[in-house]
Design a protein around this nucleic acid. Structure first.
Length: 555
RNA sequence: GGCCCGUUGGUCAAGCGGCUAAGACGGCGCCCUCUCACGGCGCAAACAUGGGUUCGAUUCCCGUACGGGUCACCA
């Protein structure tokens, strides 16, 4: 068959040449060892938590080495595209401090290796598609519009639960061989009938033979050679992921492809295409999926509906971006926590990220661990930082509370409790938690949420609160303030000394802890609170005593 | 079902032929203590399994089991 003629028949409009493209997208001038990586999402929705892994790896690899991190939008499937998803993606990632050097950014394209949207690169793909046809390595498959729409709607074969794999495989092999069988006349006839064609690459591999391929995290792998014809171009002329990946990552001079492990099975296809093209394949890093624990205890891929799957969930729940990043870093590099312990105040970008320290087994998403990481992150922040971020959060998620934060000094005083020093307190890790923490400090949100335990005598409470009011002096320091509380104990038959009380609890009606509790509930409305003295200092004498008086009247 | 990847405490994980098998989260206990925390100290808790190789296997090889992925004109 005259493949050259066939290629002209199929791609009469190709005017670009490979030489021109190579000249337009020359090898990048970068320092030795600089890595070029990309985030290449399909704009089908929100940014998935699982997607943050490869993204962060790519970003670190590039920026740590003085390389380039770019964004390429893989919008080759128009049916699944979600309007505005690409923009939202960039925005969310930027919120997490992940920024692109080039690509389809929010304000248009940036960089010399574009276009960065695959839908705008059709003419580029066609240059190479044409060449493969001319070399006898790719062939067209025609289908009528009816057949096509049938294909497009019969989307998921997986829905056919009981697929007979053996028959299916046999049928596909036969279909494949049948498709390769055609004449030039067939093509001319189909073309003149106005039928569209998909372009397939001929698989020259032997599926029974293994080939050693390398993955930077997994090491050497034994993968079978590809023996399945791959779709290069769909009937609409747009490439599939496989072809686009090969062409784009070559032309954009990607050095390292970081992607989910679900791509591992199709790696032989990609390697084969690189070899057909005569290009050097990039290095690959396949990342394991993030799993979640199912109700029955089994592991499941973190899916879209799961809590915590959508990155924007974390904003709503009040996790600051740095906490989420920090958590991801601990999952990505096993020695990260150790490094963090030694460098509590360094930015995570200073951590020497190492591909070799990455785990190759999938991990379970652990909310508890995230919470702990978040507490650590927030505890190391300055009061100003916490104030600014919390306020921003409140404006979107707690609008009724946000105005109360107008008094910055007051809010900062609350936030400053236990902050600073070598071992800052870890009272809250999310803005939701700090919101709850702060409520008692504002009359607008103060409420008696906890009742006194039934075991406590009401008249004792009344007496204690009255005595407290009589002796309270706002000018007392913490020591004398507490001495006065102790002084209340004896007349009521409570023990002022905890040690002593523990030795003989039945000798007393209660202890100074109980008396403190009575005051605590009156002042904060809760059984638990930060240090009571400090709370009252922040609230001010007037408000504190007023709340105590209210409580006395309530009882 | 074929192919591929994986398997150290409940979770994340160190380990890379010889260790009482780290550490972190969580759990539990004790201490500190005006509460809750924070902090300190401690406890329980693991090499999936069967064969090899070896003087010696968590570590190397093979099988089995289990988990995951994948088999689209989706990515």
């Amino acid at each position: 068959m005259d493949y050259k003629y066939l290629s002209e028949l199929l791609f009469p409009d190709v005017t670009l040449t490979e030489e021109e493209l190579e000249a337009k997208y020359p090898p990048r001038q970068l320092p030795e060892g600089a890595k070029v990586t990309r985030f290449a999402p399909s704009p089908t929705g929100f940014v998935h938590f699982g997607g943050l892994f490869p993204t962060l790896v790519g970003e670190r690899l590039a920026h740590q080495s003085g390389g380039v991190f770019y964004l390429r939008i893989e919008d080759t499937d128009a049916r699944r595209e979600v309007e505005g998803a690409a923009g939202a993606l960039v925005k969310t990632l930027s919120h997490y401090g992940i920024n692109f050097d080039e690509g389809a950014t929010a304000d248009g394209e940036r960089g010399d290796y574009g276009p960065y949207k695959q839908s705008k690169r059709a003419d580029i793909y066609h240059v190479y598609a044409k060449r493969l046809v001319a070399e006898g390595r790719a062939y067209p498959v025609f289908s009528t519009d009816e057949e096509l729409s049938e294909l497009l709607t019969a989307d998921k074969k997986a829905e056919l639960k009981s697929v007979n794999w053996e028959e299916d495989g046999q049928a596909r092999r036969e279909a494949m061989l049948a498709r390769r069988n055609f004449t030039i006349e067939d093509v001319e006839r189909e073309l003149s009938a106005g039928h569209k064609f998909a372009l397939f690459a001929i698989a020259e591999g032997d599926g029974t033979r293994k080939r050693r391929v390398n993955d930077l995290v997994r090491g050497d792998l034994e993968l079978p050679e590809n023996d399945e014809d791959v779709v290069l171009l769909k009937s609409d002329g747009i490439p599939t992921y496989h072809f686009a990946h090969v062409v784009d990552d070559h032309l954009m001079r990607t050095t390292h492809v970081v992607r989910g492990e679900e791509w591992l099975p199709s790696l032989p296809k990609h390697l084969q295409l690189f070899s057909y093209m005569g290009w050097k394949a990039p290095k690959y890093i396949h990342i394991s999926q993030i799993m979640r624990q199912d109700a029955d205890g089994s592991k499941k891929k973190l899916s879209k509906r799961d809590m915590g799957a959508n990155l924007d969930d974390y904003s709503r729940l009040g996790y600051c971006p740095r906490a989420v990043i920090e958590y991801v870093m601990t999952l990505l590099n096993s020695n990260y926590e150790e490094w963090r312990a030694q460098n509590p105040d360094r930015d995570y970008t200073e951590f020497p990220f190492n591909v070799k320290k990455m785990s190759s087994s999938g991990c379970l998403f652990d909310m508890k661990k995230l919470d702990d990481v978040a507490k650590n992150v927030v505890s190391r922040m300055t009061a100003d930082e916490v104030y600014a971020q919390f306020k921003a959060w409140a404006e979107s998620y707690a609008p009724e509370f946000a105005p109360l934060l107008g008094n910055a000094d007051y809010a900062r005083a609350i936030i400053s409790i236990g902050r600073g020093g070598k071992k800052p307190r870890k009272d809250y890790g999310t803005w939701v938690e700090i919101y709850n923490y702060m409520k008692p400090f504002y009359d607008g949100t103060f409420a008696v949420e906890d009742e006194y335990p039934d075991t406590v005598d009401r008249s004792d409470i009344k007496k204690a609160l009255s005595m407290f009011l009589e002796t309270y002096d706002k000018n007392d320091d913490a020591g004398t303030w507490f001495e006065k509380i102790k002084a209340i104990c004896a007349p009521l038959g409570y023990c002022a000394d905890m040690k002593e009380y523990r030795t003989a609890p039945h000798a007393y009606r209660g202890s100074v802890a109980d008396v403190s509790m009575m005051i605590r509930v009156a002042v904060t409305g809760r059984l638990n609170s930060p240090d009571l003295y400090t709370v009252m200092q922040i609230l001010g004498a007037e408000r504190s005593t007023a709340r105590v008086r209210d409580m006395i009247n309530r009882l």
